[in-house]
């Protein structure tokens, strides 16, 4: 279980600096898809970087299975929004997927097997010997996902991973994530500003307020899995939950605008 408690992140500066995250607390259960959704500028990425151990929080703590996260844990894998920069352009797709495995001390035969499986999983079985720039944006993000799942993390952290691909590709990638998660049972911590995406993917959605951000509300999404882009989204339950989350976010944005202007 991943526990975030009283997390605070303040960037130093004049007038006490800028507090991006303050008093943030929530728990992510094993095997669930937990999504943080909120308006842009809500410090979601900051929060995620603290959880992933890439940045040190200035207060509070992140613990995973009872251990405090103080650097990037071996059991976590992060998928970034900027897939083009996160893949190594000078290496083939297979080599990119292989890199983190070489660190884990896995023998060559096992590595090959994992690479092949992961690439097939994301529908890139034929692209192993290509280089990232020969692939479309959506395919590059698939490579990044393949790299993460070949690593077999306990927690998969995704920072707006589908924000820079087109709508059709985005829907495909969402379904890909759901399928992979169902097969592997990996815990997924997902960040997005897209309300539909958050409701569609998640077991639970945490609505994050504007900075200094905290959790405004955690919404259970009791829609049945496997989910479907058309069936799930046409259920009345989906529309209701989507409306609720959307309303809360709009409320927060309006309140923030009232207080600042």
């Amino acid at each position: 279980m991943l526990v975030v408690s009283g997390l605070e992140k303040t960037y130093p500066g004049k007038d006490g600096g800028f507090t991006a995250v303050s008093g943030m607390s929530f728990e992510v259960h094993e095997g669930e898809i937990f999504t943080l959704v909120g308006p842009s500028g809500a410090g979601k990425t900051t929060l995620l970087r603290c959880i992933a151990g890439l940045d040190a929080p200035t207060g509070g703590s992140v613990t995973f299975d009872g251990e405090v996260v103080s650097g990037p844990p071996r059991d976590f894998a992060v998928v970034f929004q900027d897939y083009a920069r996160s893949l190594m352009p000078w290496m083939t797709v297979a080599k990119n997927v292989e890199l983190p495995l070489m660190k884990k001390g896995i023998d060559a035969a096992d590595r090959r097997e994992r690479i092949t499986r992961a690439l097939q999983e994301v529908g890139l079985g034929d692209a192993a010997e290509k280089r990232p720039f020969q692939l479309s944006g959506g395919m590059q993000q698939r490579v990044a996902i393949a790299r993460a799942i070949a690593y077999r993390p306990k927690v998969l952290i995704m920072d707006e991973p589908f924000a820079s691909v087109d709508a059709q590709t985005r829907a495909d990638l969402e379904d890909l994530l759901l399928r992979v998660q169902e097969e592997t049972g990996t815990t997924v911590l997902f960040v997005t500003h897209d309300v539909d995406e958050s409701v569609y993917l998640s077991n639970r959605v945490a609505i994050v307020s504007r900075s200094p951000s905290r959790v405004a509300e955690i919404v259970d999404i009791p829609l049945p899995y496997p989910r479907d882009q058309i069936d799930t989204k046409s259920q009345p339950g989906f529309a209701h939950l989507r409306g609720h989350v959307f309303g809360r976010i709009r409320e927060m944005v309006r309140d923030a605008n009232l207080t600042t202007t």
């Binding site: 890439l54 990037p72 992060v78 970034f80 996160s86 890199l99 983190p100 660190k103 690593y151």
Partner: peptide, 9 residues
């Protein structure tokens, strides 16, 4: 960041 998150040496 990718290198760090995958704990590259």
């Amino acid at each position: 960041d990718t290198a760090r998150s995958y704990s590259f040496s």
